[in-house]
Amino acid sequence: MIRLRLYTTLGCHLCEQFEALLFHLANEAPVLDRVEISEDDALVERYGVRIPVLADAAGEELDRGFEAPRLAAWLAARGWLDEAAWQQLQRELGGEPPRPARGAVIRGGRRYLG
């Protein structure tokens, strides 16, 4: 089971995007303990400009996890990355050129059937 702590606050659109990305890239659905930072001045001081921040059971933190490569690397280091989902996301984000269909050729970003 993947159990993580997520430092967040209400209305944080980056936190919402991050959670969607986390659930997409993790090789099993993580259990999130959400910590609302606005209720504690010390947490606001520590995490206010860094949220969303994810912490594992050992207390190792990841901030700016909404950047897909950072989150993928963090998950991979713990054995929690769904490699197929990560490869698909990289293709969608343009990190890898699309594969042409059999008999097709890609020139200048356009696909031509052979």
Rank of each mutant, 00 (worst) to 15 (best):
R5M: 02
V44I: 14
R70E: 15
I2M: 15
D63C: 09
A68T: 12
A58I: 00
P69D: 11
P30C: 02
L54R: 03
L25P: 07
C12D: 12
P98S: 12
R99W: 03
V53K: 10
Q17G: 15
V35P: 01
A85Q: 08
R5H: 02
A57Y: 01
Y7D: 00
I2V: 15
R34W: 09
I51H: 01
E28F: 00
L21I: 08
Q17V: 08
Y112P: 00
D33L: 10
L4H: 07
G79H: 04
R46N: 01
E61M: 07
L10G: 12
G65W: 05
L25V: 12
E45G: 03
I51M: 10
R46Y: 03
A42G: 00
V49C: 00
A76K: 04
G59C: 08
A55F: 03
A104R: 02
Q87H: 13
V105H: 10
R3T: 13
V35R: 13
Y112R: 07
T8K: 00
G65C: 09
G48E: 06
A85L: 09
L32A: 08
C15K: 02
F66N: 14
E67W: 04
D41A: 12
E60M: 11
Y7A: 04
I2L: 13
A26L: 09
I106F: 03
R70S: 14
E16V: 11
R64F: 04
A68Q: 11
R70H: 14
I37M: 04
L25G: 04
N27Y: 00
R107S: 03
P52K: 02
E45T: 11
A72T: 05
L71S: 03
H24F: 03
L81D: 04
L75R: 01
P30F: 04
L62Y: 01
G79P: 02
A104T: 12
V35Q: 11
D40G: 00
H13D: 12
L89G: 10
L89T: 03
I106L: 13
F66G: 09
G103S: 05
L25A: 07
V44Q: 15
R34V: 05
G103E: 04
W86D: 15
V31F: 06
L21K: 01
E39M: 13
G103H: 09
D56T: 00
R50K: 13
R102N: 06
R99P: 04
L21W: 03
D33I: 03
F18P: 09
H13N: 13
W80P: 00
H24W: 07
R110I: 12
R107Q: 09
I51L: 02
V49A: 11
D63Q: 10
G59R: 05
Q88K: 09
W74A: 07
R50M: 06
L113C: 06
G108A: 13
P100M: 05
E16T: 13
R5Y: 00
F18I: 10
R99I: 13
A76E: 13
L14R: 08
E83R: 12
L54W: 01
G94F: 03
R50E: 11
R70C: 08
D40K: 11
W80L: 06
G11P: 06
L43E: 05
A29S: 14
A55I: 04
R3E: 11
W80E: 02
